[in-house]
């Protein structure tokens, strides 16, 4: 007998060491995430994967599944909290989808659609975050950063370059690059790095290419993030 837990009443089998999120997705149940990536250890910062396991709120990406647990995920309460977290991400940065090249391919936006976020609800912070266009091939638009640290991890652990790091603290936390000048051009960053294509939002973008695919025909214009994620899990 394999072990199993209940996700919204449905039995989900799991192997020892598997997290709630991994087991759920494998079994065809969607739990959202922004900072999680199958090639990296769990990070647990975005909190979109929040579920209630045995009555306690936990990050599904970082919590090993336990035999017999009852886990709530796709409920009005949890989805409401997820919507709230999305609203927080939208107001703390400058997210103007109509003028963003990543629109339609952006996971933050796609989750906004998935959880029917109609308004960012809160006061917008309108932070000042200058773009870095110094690099010949790539553009950094910090306005859209959600601090998932995927670029940090990819550059450090896969590319072996540590081009990116977070500095500052709290609401003043921000992305920094590995150069005394603070300019991307002065790092060894390359458009072929994993870090160059791992950003789930529109911070790290290739230059010289724009609107190659028209708005309306992009990834999440034609498919929800839920179905795309589950399809990728199957393959």
């Amino acid at each position: 007998m394999t072990k199993q837990f209940l996700l919204d009443g449905q039995p989900v089998p799991f192997e020892d060491g598997q997290t709630i999120l991994e087991a759920a997705r494998k079994a065809g149940h969607y739990i959202p995430s922004l900072c999680w990536h199958q090639d990296f250890p769990p990070h647990g910062s975005c909190k979109l994967c929040i579920v209630k396991a045995a009555g306690r709120h936990v990050s599904a990406c970082a919590t090993p599944a336990k035999e017999g647990w009852e886990v709530e995920s796709n409920t009005p309460e949890m989805n409401g909290e997820r919507r709230g977290l999305l609203q927080m991400l939208f107001v703390e940065g400058n997210h103007f989808c109509p003028s963003c090249e990543k629109s339609g391919n952006c996971e933050l936006q796609a989750l906004g659609y998935e959880y029917e976020m109609l308004t960012p609800r809160f006061r917008h912070f309108f932070p000042e975050r200058p773009v870095d266009a110094s690099h010949p091939d790539m553009l950094l638009d910090f306005n859209r950063c959600i601090f998932c640290e995927l670029c940090v991890r990819a550059s450090r652990d896969v590319d072996g370059k540590s081009v990116f790091a977070l500095t500052g603290r709290g609401i003043h936390k921000h992305l920094a690059v590995n150069a005394e000048s603070g300019r991307l051009a002065d790092t060894d960053f390359s458009k072929d790095d994993l870090a160059a294509r791992i950003c789930p939002v529109g911070v790290i973008l290739p230059k010289g290419r724009g609107f190659a695919v028209p708005i309306g025909e992009r990834t999440f214009d034609t498919e929800t993030i839920r179905s795309k994620t589950l399809k990728e899990e199957e393959s």
Partner: peptide
């Protein structure tokens, strides 16, 4: 004093 790691506390 928030370290800014997770969304709910940072924002």
């Amino acid at each position: 004093e928030s370290c800014g790691f997770c969304t709910p506390c940072r924002v």
